[in-house]
């Protein structure tokens, strides 16, 4: 067991190191830093006003929105790029043959790669989160402790995207297809709510075609990963009004993310096992 964990961890660390050397990821990271700090410049255009609102309140809100959006956009790009490239690159470089010739099982290799990807994503997310905290702290003078919850939920979203992108990447020989696939997974994951609208709009119609559409839409809605379920992060960050006690939903959202990830990983493993290497 110890050897299993050790070798898995070695693969993870190697993957992480390799990930951190990628110029694309560094580029995304630098861009995100520029955007996070540039948020202050954007908010400078907001006019001072009277009444109960102070300019700093609007500025704070805008800074939070810009930073959260930046983290989401660049975070998702980093996640997709890294998840899409780790396995195909190793196949392309033939490194995988060397690794698999050692006493390492495919399951172990894949797990190591997946954990390595997550380490890279987490590190990027943490760095962006720290910068976000600095940006908010410089404006408000208070440490935004709720940000930790917001970033945790953002990570849950990345975890699901990463798992399914990883599954696509296991069947590919280059990183291009999984990258496009990852972007589609992101888009589809956010559009899943639409399926519920489709099911609702068909309503109680008894026409067979309508029934088929309704049932298909409903079951697809239930089965496909729904990234809108992680939209709780805005609520958490702004302590939105009327929110139910936070501790009621967050554990369930995390459990959902883990369940989706397991599905993604099983698909990846299944595909990878069938791959002829």
């Amino acid at each position: 067991m110890g050897s299993f964990l050790r070798s898995t961890w070695t693969i993870s660390v190697f993957t992480w190191r390799e990930g951190m050397r990628k110029k694309t990821l560094i580029g995304f990271f630098i861009l995100s830093i520029l955007t996070i700090f540039g948020s202050s410049v954007l908010t400078a255009y907001v006019a001072p006003t009277s009444g109960t609102s102070t300019p700093s309140e609007i500025e704070s809100k805008m800074i939070k929105d810009i930073c959260l959006t930046t983290i989401s956009i660049f975070g998702v790009l980093i996640t997709i790029f890294i998840s899409a490239s780790v396995v195909p690159n190793e196949v392309e470089n033939k490194v995988i043959y060397t690794v698999l010739s050692k006493p390492i099982r495919r399951f172990q290799y894949l797990l190591g790669k997946f954990i390595g990807v997550q380490l890279t994503v987490i590190l990027n997310l943490v760095l962006m989160g720290i910068l976000f905290c600095i940006a908010v702290y410089s404006k408000e003078g208070i440490f935004p402790s709720l940000l930790i919850w917001a970033i945790l939920l953002t990570y849950c979203e990345f975890l699901v995207i990463s798992a399914f992108t990883f599954a696509v990447s296991c069947s590919a020989t280059s990183a291009v297809l999984p990258t496009i696939g990852g972007l589609f997974i992101y888009i589809i994951g956010n559009l899943t709510e639409y399926l519920k609208d489709v099911a609702n709009r068909v309503g109680e119609s008894t026409v067979l075609a309508d029934k088929i559409v309704r049932e298909t839409a409903y079951w697809l809605y239930m089965v496909l990963p729904n990234l809108q379920k992680f939209s709780l992060k805005n609520q958490v960050l702004y302590l939105s009004v009327n929110d139910p006690p936070k501790d009621a939903q967050i554990p369930q959202v995390i459990a959902y993310a883990l369940a989706c990830t397991v599905v993604g990983y099983i698909i990846a493993l299944w595909v990878f096992r069938r791959k002829e290497l």
């Binding site: 609007i58 959006t69 639409y194």
Partner: peptide, 21 residues
């Protein structure tokens, strides 16, 4: 009835900020 929020992939608040500017 498509929720416009879906179109913005959860970046509605960012869009709102730009409208406010």
């Amino acid at each position: 009835d498509v929720n416009l929020g879906v179109v913005f992939f959860g970046f509605r608040t960012m869009a709102a900020n730009l409208v406010w500017l």
